[in-house]
Each structure stands twice: as C-alpha cells, then as structure tokens.
Nucleic acid binder design. Structure first.
Length: 208
DNA sequence: ATTTTCAAT
C-alpha cells in the first residue's frame, strides 16, 4: 500500500521545466542522461460515450527500467481493471531496451483490451544494425505498438500536459527539428528493414 | 573526426 501511495504521489507532481528539457532534449550525444522519464496518458472507455483519463510521469528507480515500473503500476490495478478498453500513450526520453520491449510485447499479447502508442525522444543503443534494441523495437511493432519519434508538436504537447510550465510557452532548443527528422529516419530504417537495400537494388538496376 | 546510452563510484 505504501508503494502505491508513493506511486500516486509521483503521478500527481508535474515535471520541472529544467528537468523536462534536460531529459527530453533530442541531441545526438545525450551525455549524462542516466535517468529515463516516461510521461503517460491512460484513456479508459467507461461507457459507450464516456472516457476517463489518467496522466502523469515516472522515472526509473533502483535498477528498474521505467517501462517495467509502468507495467507494475498497471498490474497493481492502479490505472487498470479488467474488462475495460484502454489506450495508453507514453512519451519516453529513451526508447525501450530489448528486454523491456520483450516484456511489453508479452504483456500486450495477454492484454488485448489495451492499445499502446510510444513516442520516444532518443533511440537507446540502436546504432549497430544488428543490435538487440533494434530487434526489440521491431518486436513491439509486430505486437501492434505504434512507435514514433517525438517532434516539435509532441514536445509542445508534453510541455503543456506534464510540465509545471506556468503558462510559459514551450521554447524549442537548437536543432530540435533537425534531430527529430534524423531520428525519425533512423527509426524508419529500423522498423522497415530491407527498404534501403531495395533502393540500392533499384539504383543498381537503373545503372545509377 | 569524435562524443552517449534506464550508472557506478
């Protein structure tokens, strides 16, 4: 019960502006981001024409990745009860590691009444083409998860929704758009493997 | 060109 109280306490607090900027900045070399934040919205269908919402944020704690903390929260019944339809959208500062992807896919296969959409600010350990993190993302996609790289609008939305912004308008950092485009391209390569080679083949065929 | 990563000290 105390654990649950702690969770609810965490959920009720808005993120500090500096913390949000620091951890969600989508720069290529995100030095020192040894924490991961997860901002979420849980939409619940409680009647034919009515929805209820929960929102908040979590961060990883004591060696537990934030995605698994979120799953624990769901499983503890804090945000979830059987028989209702859910849609969960979360905005994470790092993309999930392979292990979290695996566990999420497992969870989702047992929970058909839950839809998950994941927005990520940066890609976690996805540089090598054969990395398990990349494979994990593909597994999530096959499990029906929509994975997207955050863009300006997404940061804007998060700022309004999860940050103690006190009516201060979100101000983009240098390179936000460029970095987002680059990361989106990379994620696209990860999720649609083979496309690049197809192009290569096409060029070869055309003698280019 | 190169740099980092849900830490470990």
């Amino acid at each position: 019960l105390d654990t649950m109280k702690t969770y609810f306490l965490c959920l009720s607090v808005l993120l500090a502006q500096k913390k949000f900027i620091y951890h969600y900045k989508n720069m290529r070399w995100a030095k020192g981001r040894h924490e991961t934040y997860l901002c979420f919205v849980v939409k619940r269908r409680v009647g034919p024409n009515s929805l209820s919402f929960d929102f908040g944020h979590l961060r990883n704690r004591s060696g537990c990745h934030v995605e698994l903390l979120f799953l624990r929260l769901l499983e503890a019944g804090a945000l979830y009860s059987v028989g209702l339809c859910y849609s969960v959208t979360w905005f994470c500062s790092w993309s999930p590691c392979s292990d979290c992807s695996y566990r999420l896919a497992q969870f989702l296969s047992q929970t058909p009444n839950l839809r998950l959409r994941i927005y990520v600010s940066r890609l976690y350990f996805c540089d090598p083409e054969d990395s398990s993190a990349r494979e994990g993302l593909r597994m999530l996609q096959r499990a029906g998860v929509q994975i997207t790289v955050m863009n300006y609008e997404d940061y804007f939305y998060c700022w309004q929704t999860f940050v103690a912004c006190r009516q201060r308008v979100f101000k983009a950092w240098d390179g936000l758009h460029q970095n987002s485009v680059q990361l989106a391209r990379k994620l696209n390569d990860i999720l649609q493997p083979g496309e690049a080679e197809d192009w290569g083949d096409a060029f070869e065929l055309l003698g280019l």
